[in-house]
Amino acid sequence: MTSDVAKIDGDTPTMRLLALLEVIAEKDQFFTLQGLVEETGLPKPTLHRMLQQLEAAGMLQRDGDSRHYGTGMRLRRLAETLLMNNTVHGARHGVLSRLVEEIGESCNITALSGNEVLYLDRVETSAPLRFYLHPGSRVPVHASASGKLFLAQMPPAQRKRLLAHVTLERFTPNTRADVDALEHEIERVRRDGYAFDDEELLPGLLCIAVLVPGSKGRSNLGIAVQAPTMRLTPERAREFLPALQRAAEAIAAIDAEAAPGNSASA
């Protein structure tokens, strides 16, 4: 029950409504108010009010008996439109897939989200030994190769402000769990233009990452390779940098073409 309640947790009413929609989107049949109460543990009046709001917005609709709910036309159209128009994600995924084919290891696209690194997309290697990290996963900024790249872009005052509210947890003996050690590493990242996670988050996992070039200098996209240390050493990982940088440039070109005001995207 606790995990279900957490599904519809949120800091604002809007976030709680979105979380409830995520629960509803997993259903392949009509549902009732009482069924949601039992599934989520939320008070019946609270859920009734939330369902009313979603119904009024066209996101849900009632079945003929008025007791059962299903997805509304507006929500279905939103999902269909997203699938039809989300060519940027599909194009990026194609670049990622080709990169995995070229180097033979798992690759992912990341972004900075608050004080964490968010996995936007990931393609797994076919090798039998691998670490499973799915899109939507979040990892700490200080123990991530992409996270160090995002930190290295920031002015010192901005980075200091962010790290002041982050617990630099030590996940392995290699984790840089104090600010001075992390700042020293960030200097190296800024100089070299790439970053490692050398068993800093998970024992036995090595990662190398570069930034996707941004149109205005700074970037909030990274692309990375991850593999077990028994297959990938830092020296071997550096050999992947040209392929990583080509993929990063390809993603930057996709994003530039899709940017508002670009005639090519019209």
Rank of each mutant, 00 (worst) to 15 (best):
H89A: 13
L232H: 03
A266C: 10
N262V: 00
L42P: 07
E101P: 02
E26Q: 15
L221W: 06
L112F: 01
L82K: 09
G94P: 05
G217A: 07
A25Y: 10
T32H: 09
T229D: 07
R130V: 11
F31M: 10
L75I: 05
L75R: 12
R159E: 08
H184D: 10
T14L: 15
R159S: 10
R190C: 05
I103C: 06
H93A: 09
E80W: 00
G204W: 02
D9G: 14
R67S: 12
A250M: 08
F30Q: 15
V166T: 03
D178V: 09
T2Q: 12
Q61C: 13
M15E: 15
G104H: 06
S265N: 15
G136Q: 02
L99T: 07
E185N: 09
T46K: 12
N262W: 02
A253H: 04
G114K: 05
A57D: 14
P228T: 02
G204A: 02
Q158G: 09
T87D: 11
G217C: 08
N262R: 05
A266P: 02
L133P: 01
S106Q: 00
V123N: 00
N115Y: 04
S137V: 09
L120S: 03
E183N: 12
N174L: 06
E80G: 09
Q34D: 13
S106G: 13
E116D: 11
G104M: 03
M1R: 10
G104I: 05
T175D: 06
S66V: 11
E235V: 06
A237S: 06
L163I: 01
I208A: 00
Y119M: 09
N108D: 12
L118V: 08
L241K: 01
R218N: 14
L182Q: 03
F150D: 08
D63S: 15
P13H: 08
L99E: 05
V117L: 00
S219T: 06
P213H: 07
I223M: 08
R98W: 02
S144A: 04
L206D: 00
E200Q: 07
C207E: 09
E39Y: 10
D197Q: 07
V95G: 00
L168G: 03
L149A: 03
V139C: 04
E26T: 14
V210I: 03
S263T: 10
E183K: 06
G70W: 14
T81Y: 11
G193E: 10
L42W: 13
M73S: 15
T46P: 09
A164W: 01
M230N: 13
Q158Y: 08
R122I: 11
G114I: 08
V37L: 08
T233E: 04
G70D: 11
D121T: 05
